[in-house]
Design a protein around this nucleic acid. Sequence first.
DNA 1: ATGACTGCAAACCGTTTGCATACTG
DNA 2: CAGTATGCAAACGGTTTGCAGTCAT
Lengths: 136, 136
Amino acid sequence: MLEITKVLKKNGYKVTPQRLAVFNVLKHNKKHPCVDSIYNELQPKFPTMSLATVYKSLEVFKTLGLVQELNIGEGSFRYDANTKPHPHVICLKCGKVDDIEYIDSLNLTDYAETKTGYKITGQQIYFYGYCPECKN
Amino acid sequence: MLEITKVLKKNGYKVTPQRLAVFNVLKHNKKHPCVDSIYNELQPKFPTMSLATVYKSLEVFKTLGLVQELNIGEGSFRYDANTKPHPHVICLKCGKVDDIEYIDSLNLTDYAETKTGYKITGQQIYFYGYCPECKN
DNA sequence: ATGACTGCAAACCGTTTGCATACTG
DNA sequence: CAGTATGCAAACGGTTTGCAGTCAT
């Protein structure tokens, strides 16, 4: 059984074609799409699916820890099915959003906890610049 | 002459009471206020100032590098008159946003450039958790 | 004096909500 | 069969825009 099916059932949520479709887009699209991109990508195969359903599905996935939400400052959220904490780089020219492998050795969480006295439970790290193709 | 006055004039922008007032709020309020908070804080002394003016002033300040914009995922932006790159911690209970001193020794920018081949020009680092008062 | 700035109101756009219908379990 | 999920349309809230009148230089 697919991971997502298992998690939905275990938590009392119904498994629907729409939820599987939305999750599938995130699993296979590495571009960190926003809601509108997900919606558009699904239109051909699911012409009756509504934007509201995409929003509601993502809300459930967030609750269940199946996706993480990114705010790169565009005015809309993007989504990532990779829920391990990892930094992102955003190209200011072409708008591409790439992942960066997380390095535990930097121990950022410990650093933040020591400096602030907070109990840290999550993090988001964004780098802004120009990708190799747009650098010139 | 005040720093802000100098920078506005040098770049051909007019120095207005509204712009000085908005900037002054950011200089003295360490809470990283959103537009609405700035607007409300100014109401007593500047009862005719409009929200649009606050937005337009901040737009100018961003362009001139006088403030930085934060996206902690609330659906509205916050502003910080400290434009040096530095991480922020957000308390998930009381909503407080604190600064963290930036540590050059971690060399995050170099790390990101080496890993990705991007030319990095900016960064935003957010930690989420519970502040000392809300930890329990 | 003139060109930029302000303040109002309307427009915008991403997201949320309410509700009748459809479908999962 | 019961109750949740979908899909539509309307509502919402932060932000942007257009424009007439005002103010900084």
